[in-house]
Design a binder for these strands. Structure first.
Length: 489
RNA sequence: GGUCUCUUGGCCGAGUGGCUAGGCACCGGUCUGCAAAACCGAUCACUCCGGUUCGAAUCCGGAAGAGACCUCCA
């Protein structure tokens, strides 16, 4: 394991060797979901990307604290609803308490993440539980002269900040461009400049999600929660901050500004951003209304879906692309992922059928090193999968006598899949074979009948049994003088 | 309009200055009573135009097309 882990740092736009601040400890913060709607395919990408990072760092022996927040307050809607809080808006529509909505969608998010075999983060803080920390942060920023108060609201003073620091360093934005391009939003008139952003917003009378503060009864600004919670749990400086590319500006840019304004230094050492999942070449998202929820994918209940796809198909599909590339959704692509995934795990299950030879035509440790190299190259999961498929081919070839495994390589082969496919990529075999003993017995009974029909050359009977079982979703494979079967989903 | 990114075979996707991933689909063959599975094999590629180079799909310039961000967004 001589090679070193390199990750692409958005801050410098290049791959950099990952050196933790305090090894063996690693701190990761990832922007989690806003819980006012069901998670869609797009949400699965960062969850799985950073899950693999989490898993891989642990595999490498690091002690990782992984913080992924839940945003349950603070994001403003567009100007059509006068800056009403998203959570609150939904609550009013459904006549629910805001926290009821939050609870509902948080639970669902967790369920779907479990389905995708995404490990739970070490800490999952909620914005609403950290109002005090956010207020303290505002105080710091204000004390340092980078915020101003107007009518009970507090805004970040981008101009003042820019005199000393570089606002736009992450997103590559230039202040003058922002000035001419920033859209007029609610509260614009009270801001010194259009590009200033709110740290604390005074609540309108009808606003029920509100907290008392020295400035006003109100709520914290859009970007504050992540600054407050990341440093609270990971320290003033920590290793990795992740999220979707669409968060780079303004969200992460503002986070940097807030942290620097408050602490005088940058908190994040490596910024990592996953790319978008597209559908027909366009970003899948709420505003475009072209998203498919995870539930719809799992059930197949969506007009564009020709069938249901299992959680592992989704996970495999996502891992077959490098996380910084866009990934285009299509039924064809999903089906391809499904088939490939099945084939891979069938081969895995066949490893124990291999008869060991004296010598070996394969060298698993070589492949193992290649897998490590691929992961070390900015988590190149598609390469890892390609290597695993090479092994799949070798396993199958061995079973028909074209290749050879010795004892040692059989063991190594199993370990290869256990480590890379299961532990690091986080794939799990979906048990399509029923655990139901009665079903299993009945199918075996029928297939034994078919076998004897075959043996007395009564192919009419044997084909009839096969066709009927196939129609019921049971896939039959004939072996030399027996059979195998499995449930086809 | 500003900033940035991308363009790989039927589809999804890696990668790289010469050795030209992988999956899925398709085609031929082996096996099979037939089929499925598996194996073997074949076909299919780097948007276009210039330039650098012994050699570029890979580097540089230009064009066209697509996308992202600039507003909540994974």
């Amino acid at each position: 394991m001589s090679s070193k882990l390199f990750i692409y740092n958005t801050l410098n736009k290049k791959k950099e060797e990952f050196i933790p601040l305090n090894p063996p400890f690693v701190g990761i913060y990832v922007c989690g979901p806003t819980v006012y709607g069901d998670p869609h395919l797009g949400h699965a990408r960062p969850a799985i990307t950073f899950d693999v990072l989490f898993r891989y760092l642990q595999y490498l022996g690091f002690k990782v604290r992984y913080v992924r927040n839940i945003t349950d307050v603070g994001h403003l809607e567009n100007d059509s609803d006068q800056g009403e809080d998203k959570i609150e808006k939904k609550a009013r529509i459904e006549q629910l308490e805001p926290m009821e909505v939050v609870q509902y969608y948080s639970d669902r998010y967790h369920t779907f993440m479990d389905n995708l075999n995404v490990k739970k983060p070490s800490i999952e803080p909620r914005a609403s539980g950290h109002i005090i920390e956010q207020m303290q942060l505002i105080e710091e920023i204000k004390k340092n002269g980078y915020a101003y108060e107007v009518n009970g609201s507090v805004y970040f003073d981008v101009e003042a900040y820019s005199k000393k620091y570089h606002y736009g360093k992450l997103s590559g934005r230039i202040l003058e461009d922002l000035y001419s391009n920033t859209r007029n939003l609610d509260g614009q008139s009270e801001k010194k400049n259009s590009y200033d952003f709110a740290l604390w917003k005074k609540a309108l009378p009808e606003h029920i999600m509100r907290w008392p503060s020295k400035w006003s009864d109100g709520f914290p600004g859009w970007h504050l929660e992540c600054s407050a919670m990341s440093t609270k749990y990971l320290g003033d400086v920590f290793d990795i901050h992740g999220g979707g590319m669409d968060l780079i500006f303004p969200h992460h840019e503002c986070e940097i500004a807030q942290s620097v304004a408050a602490h005088g230094k940058e908190t994040v050492r490596y910024w990592m951003h996953n790319n978008m999942i597209t559908i027909n070449g366009q970003k899948m998202g709420k505003s475009l209304g072209n998203f498919i929820t995870l539930e719809q994918l799992f059930t197949g209940e969506h007009p564009v879906l020709t069938k249901a796809y299992s959680p592992m198909t989704i996970r495999f599909f996502i891992l077959q692309a490098q996380y910084r590339s866009t990934l285009d959704f299509s039924n064809e692509a999903l089906s391809a992922a499904e088939k490939g995934f099945e084939r891979m795990f069938e081969a895995y299950n066949n490893i124990n059928k291999i008869q060991p030879s004296e010598n070996s035509t394969v060298n698993i440790s070589e492949i193992r090193n290649k897998c490590i190299d691929a992961l070390n190259d900015d988590l190149n999961t598609p390469i890892v999968i390609a290597h695993l498929f090479d092994v799949v081919k070798t396993i199958n070839s061995t079973l028909v006598g074209n290749e050879k495994f010795d004892k040692e390589n059989i063991k190594a082969c199993k370990k290869l899949f256990d480590d890379f496919a299961f532990e690091i990529l986080g794939l799990v075999q979906e048990t399509t074979n029923s655990n139901n003993q009665i079903l299993s017995d009945v199918v075996s009974l029928l297939l034994n009948e078919r076998l004897s029909a075959k043996q007395r050359k009564d192919f009419e009977t044997s084909d009839r049994i096969r066709n009927k079982l196939t129609a019921l979703g049971i896939e039959i494979k004939d072996t030399k003088d027996s059979f195998e079967w499995k449930l086809k989903n």
